[in-house]
Each structure stands twice: as C-alpha cells, then as structure tokens.
Computed example of a mutant assay.
Amino acid sequence: MGEIHGYISRISDNYTVTLSVDSDFDRKTIWRAISQEDALSAWLGRPSRSIMTGESFTVTYPNDTDYSITARLHDRRVPSSLTLSWKFNDLPENLVRISLSKRPEGGTEIRLEVTGLKREDAAIAAATWHAQMEFLRNYLYGTEVIGHALRFRRDELVPSYEQQILDTGAPRRTRRELLAELEFEQSHMPPQENEMRRVLHTHGHLA
C-alpha cells in the first residue's frame, strides 16, 4: 500500500478533505476491511451494530471513551463504495464517502472524501482521517494497530493540513488557537491516556 495523498479544497465557506492511496490488495479484501464489524473494530473503532443502509450506529475508538461518534449509512454499493453521515462529538455532521476503484495494473485505489467541513474543523478532520487510513494500511498488512496513538499522529499531521488551508486563502488560525484546542482535549483525557501518550512518544511507537 503506497503513500497516502491528502488535500483540502474549498468552495466558499465549505471545505472538502480528499485522501487517496494505491493498494496491492484487491477490492474484495479491502471491502471487508471497511464494512465488516470485526475488521472495523481492529483499525477504526467498534460499531454498535451491523452497518445497514438507513440505520444509525455509534463507533467506539479503541481504549478511548472521550470520543462520541454517531454515524448512518446512506449508500452501500458492494464492493465499490460506502457513503455515511458522520458526527464527531459536538462538531457538525459531515458526509464521508469511501470509494474503491480497480487499478489497470492490478490492486485498488482507495479514495476517502469528507464534505461539509467548516474552516475551523478541516485540518483536524483531514489529519484524523489520514491517521485512520494509516491504521487501515497497518491492518491490511497484519501490523499492530495502536488505536490510542490516533491523537498523537493526528497532532503531527495537523500543521501540514493547516498550511494547505492557508494556501487556499482562508483566514489564518493562530498557533495559540490550535494549541488551546488540543490542550482542552488533552485536559479531558483520562489519566492513563496521558501516561500512554508519554510512553508512546518516548519510544516512538506511532502508527
């Protein structure tokens, strides 16, 4: 599975995150990874129920009770695409579409789009989904997925996505605003999660 390419586009005040990566795995293998509860639980989070069109479900991240995710499957086309609404904590609801396309030379192109984002949420959304796609890659290759590393990897990726947004001509968010947002989240993290963060940084065990 190759390098993950991510970019943020803007139309007026609405932002879209697009992530893509080429994989040597066939669509059937990747489809199972993005649609079956046991597979999703390994790299994304544990769904509360089977993912059926029109039905809502919640997602629980591994070892993390601070995140609340409610989703609904709008469209399911086996084995080529899933379209879901996705609500993270108190942030506005977004639309997430995962598409799998056959590559002429073999394998699959994985494409993930998140639409309906606001300026203040776009960089963090891009970094979060980028990290999740790295976890998907690890899962496909049978590598351990360290779910509680999500925050740390996201924090590493945010600056580059924030720069992309600035390149679109959007107003700058100050470093103080970004740090305040991340520090607020970390202050609400259970003590064992803060200790895990310290240990993972010390040993470099980021996904």
Score class of each variant (00 low, 15 high):
V78R: 12
G54S: 02
G147V: 07
Q163I: 13
L206W: 05
Q163N: 11
L206Y: 04
F25D: 14
L140W: 04
P191G: 03
P79W: 01
S35E: 02
W43K: 03
L182W: 07
N138P: 00
S56F: 02
R77D: 14
F88D: 10
A127E: 05
R119H: 14
R77T: 12
Q164S: 08
P92A: 07
T168S: 08
D121K: 00
P159A: 00
S9P: 03
A180L: 11
R76F: 15
M196A: 15
G54H: 05
G106N: 10
A127Q: 05
M189R: 03
S35Q: 05
L40G: 03
G116Y: 04
L206N: 05
I124A: 14
E37F: 00
R175C: 00
E177M: 05
R197E: 13
H74S: 10
I165M: 14
Y67C: 05
V145A: 11
L19F: 09
A33D: 06
A131M: 02
D26W: 01
E109A: 13
G54M: 04
I165Y: 07
R151V: 10
T202M: 11
D24I: 10
Y141M: 11
E120Q: 12
E193D: 06
R197I: 12
R49M: 09
Q36R: 14
R153A: 12
N138I: 00
L112G: 11
S20T: 13
I30K: 01
T60I: 04
R27S: 10
I98V: 15
E105A: 08
M133K: 10
M1R: 06
P79Y: 01
R32T: 13
E105G: 01
V78W: 03
K28L: 03
P159E: 02
R111G: 00
D22I: 05
I51M: 14
N89K: 11
T70Y: 01
Y61V: 04
L19G: 03
E105M: 07
E144Q: 08
L84N: 03
D38Q: 13
Y141P: 00
Q192A: 13
I69V: 15
A170S: 07
H74N: 14
D167L: 10
A33V: 05
T29R: 13
R32H: 12
A207D: 13
A123T: 05
A131C: 12
M196K: 09
T83R: 12
G147Y: 04
S35N: 07
N89C: 04
P47C: 07
I11R: 11
Q163R: 15
E183P: 00
S85V: 02
G54R: 06
E156I: 07
E181L: 09
T174F: 01
E55F: 03
L84D: 01
V21I: 12
H130E: 09
N138M: 08
H203K: 05
L40W: 09
R172D: 11
D22V: 02
L112I: 13
V59C: 06
W31V: 02
E183A: 13
D13H: 08
V96Y: 03
S187Q: 14
A39H: 04
D64I: 07
Y139Q: 11
A127G: 06
S9H: 07
D26A: 09
H74F: 06
F152D: 15
V158G: 09
E195Q: 10
E109P: 08
R153K: 14
